[in-house]
């Protein structure tokens, strides 16, 4: 659906993304992960027809963004890091305006309205002025305006920014609910979000792709960086430590009591999950939960970011300091 071919974008003399190439299939949910200034927002703005690449080519559904921007804009829904909202309108008025602006008829908007209000949990505030809503609701209205016209491509730039934990959970559920209906591009620096929502991760660092693949792919490829597992165990902390003592490459990093249970974090090297489970069960402890912690992705992310920053080779030269081509 999306093909980004050797795209470079300069702002004046500063390079925001350099020689970026990737492709995305229809229906995928892609997470763009990176530190501030890594080039996530620039990449999403390039795909939203808000920026032209300095060099390279971006095609969406076979259409070039330079040649057919208006055609592409019809099937894109975009939520920037600050939701573009008209405060004086009610939620319904605003969504109707956004839908009609993307070419929907008044009848089509009316038919779609209830569905979108339900998906974004906005029914109870449909008649309220947007300016009177809480930050969480405003963010939902931001997503609602991006999906009202049933876009094939949904681009969400930092959709969880500024939300409290409850709102984050609600927003995550909402975004999960949109999977399958749209191709979703999501940028965030919240690792847990990427893990729980996306099929594939593009890690950006200094305007380049530092790594890409599913979380598992990344763990396998960069496994030596160490994955972190999180276990919910019924039993004593000492017994857990003792049970895992002999497993090669495994180190218990943290044990926290949560009621009758223990939450155990272990750093691992290589594929040792079966062995860990066996040891816990053989020791007579109850294994209630077993998952890869976001810290695994975090380790890979931190390592790759550091590697990119510290590698001054031609391929990884600090992009932002380079001069723009004349």
């Amino acid at each position: 659906m999306i093909v980004v071919d050797r795209v470079t974008k300069y702002y004046g003399s500063a390079c925001a993304v350099r020689d970026l190439s990737f492709s995305i299939e229809e229906g995928q949910c892609i997470g763009f992960l990176g530190l501030n200034g890594a080039g996530k927002s620039t990449t999403l703005r390039l795909l939203s027809c808000l920026l032209l690449p300095t060099s390279g080519r971006v095609t969406i559904r076979g259409l070039d963004v330079e040649e057919s921007p208006d055609e592409i804009r019809k099937f894109i829904g975009y939520l920037p890091d600050t939701p573009p909202l008209y405060g004086e309108m009610t939620v319904e008025q605003f969504l109707s305006f956004a839908g009609r602006l993307r070419g929907m008829s008044a009848d089509d908007v009316n038919h779609r309205m209830d569905e979108v209000l339900a998906v974004c949990a906005l029914k109870e505030v449909r008649k309220k002025a947007v300016s009177a809503l809480s930050h969480g609701y405003k963010q939902r209205v931001g997503i609602a305006q991006a999906i009202i016209h049933r876009p094939a491509l949904l681009i969400l730039d930092e959709p969880l920014q500024g939300l409290d934990p409850v709102q984050i959970v609600e927003m995550r559920e909402m975004i999960r609910g949109l999977r399958g209906k749209h191709t979703i591009l999501l940028s965030t620096h919240m690792l847990a979000e990427i893990e729980q929502t996306c099929d594939r991760i593009l890690m950006l660092s200094r305007g380049r792709i530092a790594a890409e693949g599913s979380e598992e792919d990344l763990a396998n490829r960069f496994g030596h960086a160490g994955a972190t597992l999180e276990l919910d165990v019924r039993g004593e902390a000492d017994a857990v430590r003792l049970a895992l003592e002999g497993v090669g490459g495994v180190k218990v990093t943290d044990v926290t009591a949560t009621g009758q249970m223990l939450r155990v974090r272990v750093s691992t090297e290589g594929e040792v999950r079966e062995e860990i489970a066996k040891r816990i069960v053989d020791a007579g402890l109850g294994l209630r939960g077993f998952r890869t912690s976001s810290a695994g992705l975090e380790n890979i992310f931190v390592r790759l970011s550091k590697e990119t920053e510290s590698a001054p080779s031609a391929a990884n030269a600090p992009a932002a300091s380079e001069e723009a081509p004349s």
Partner: peptide
Amino acid sequence: QTGTLTLLFTSPVK
């Protein structure tokens, strides 16, 4: 200032 120009710019509006 409010960022709503983005809504117009990402819509098929001349």
